[in-house]
Amino acid sequence: MKKTLVHFELLLGREVHDSAGKRVGRILSVTAEREGGDCVIREYLLGPAALLRRLGITTLRLVGFKHREPLRVPWDQLDLSDPKKPCLRCRADELPK
């Protein structure tokens, strides 16, 4: 069977829409785990908070920037069949908190 391959670096910054077509946010951070010899994706983190988290910026809080948690999308909720247009398999409010 032919493998479905996706360039990871091109996913970054892509806007994600949910099943209702509503804009959810951009993919700005991705967590992964090592499983034996493999490395597998667990969650996609969306929104500016994901970027700040990735860059380790905490100082902005001092100047009154509200520190929000990034939107977490488990790997099985993101449909990558068209890597240029990633979308959720559910509605944004159905995501596990």
Partner: peptide
């Protein structure tokens, strides 16, 4: 990254 592009 696209954020940076818009910044640029």
């Amino acid at each position: 990254m696209r954020n940076f592009f818009s910044l640029q």
